[in-house]
Design a protein around this nucleic acid. Structure first.
Lengths: 88, 88
DNA sequence: TATCTATTTAGATGTTTATCTAAATAGATG
DNA sequence: CATCTATTTAGATAAACATCTAAATAGATA
C-alpha cells in the first residue's frame, strides 16, 4: 500500500485494461479472463496485484468472484500529480 | 512513450522524489544525485528513465546538465484516471 | 457423496529492473 | 595540451516480474 505498489500495478497494459473494463460494472474473474489471451493463473496473478494495490476489491457470490473497481487510490495519485504541476 | 513507460518510471520512489525536487526549479544531475545515497551511474540510469518517459527534459549548460520537470504527460494520465472515476 | 465449475496456489522459467564498479566522453581550465 | 570535473556507457549481478503447466481448494449440483 503506497504509490510504488499502485504505479507498478498500473504499469501493465493488461491490468489497465482490466480497470477500464470494470468501469462499466463488476465482472467475474472468468469473464475478465475471457477478454485476454492468457491462462487463468496469469489472470489470477494480475487480479491479485490490482487487489493488493487497492485498485479493485472482490465480492464472493456463489462460486464466482466478482471484481469491482476502486478509484479512491487514484484520487490520492491525482492530488500528488496536481502538486507536481504546481496546482496548489 | 506510452502509459506503460510513464507508470514504470513513476513506480520507483527515488524517481518520484526527483520529480518532487524539480518542482522548485531545474537542477543539475550532480545536485540531484547528492540528495540520494546512490552512485552517479545509478542516478544517471534513473534520470534516463524519467527522460525516456518524457517526465523530465535536459538542458546542457557548460559541462553541466540541468534537468527540468515536464508535466504534460501527467495531464494525459490524469485524464485517463478521471475517466476511470466516471468523470465524463 | 461424487463430480463439475470457478478460481487460486505452487513451482519453474525467461525477461526486466536496480544497482554496482570500471571505463569512456566531453567540456572547462591551469 | 594535460588534466580536472560532470556525466554517461558498458558490463556484471541479484532481485523482481510475467508467464506457463500442474495441482489444490471450495462451492454448486447431479
Amino acid at each position: 500500500m503506497g504509490f510504488a505498489e499502485t504505479f507498478k500495478a498500473l504499469s501493465d497494459p493488461a491490468r489497465r485494461e482490466i480497470l477500464d473494463m470494470l468501469k462499466d460494472g463488476p465482472m467475474t474473474a472468468g469473464d475478465i479472463g475471457n477478454h485476454f489471451d492468457m491462462t487463468g493463473p496469469t489472470m489470477s496473478y494480475h487480479l491479485k496485484i490490482l487487489k493488493n494495490a487497492d485498485l479493485i476489491y472482490e465480492e464472493k457470490q456463489k462460486n464466482f468472484i466478482f471484481y469491482h473497481l476502486n478509484t479512491s487510490v487514484l484520487e490520492e495519485i491525482m492530488v500528488w500529480m496536481s502538486s507536481l504541476k504546481g496546482d496548489k
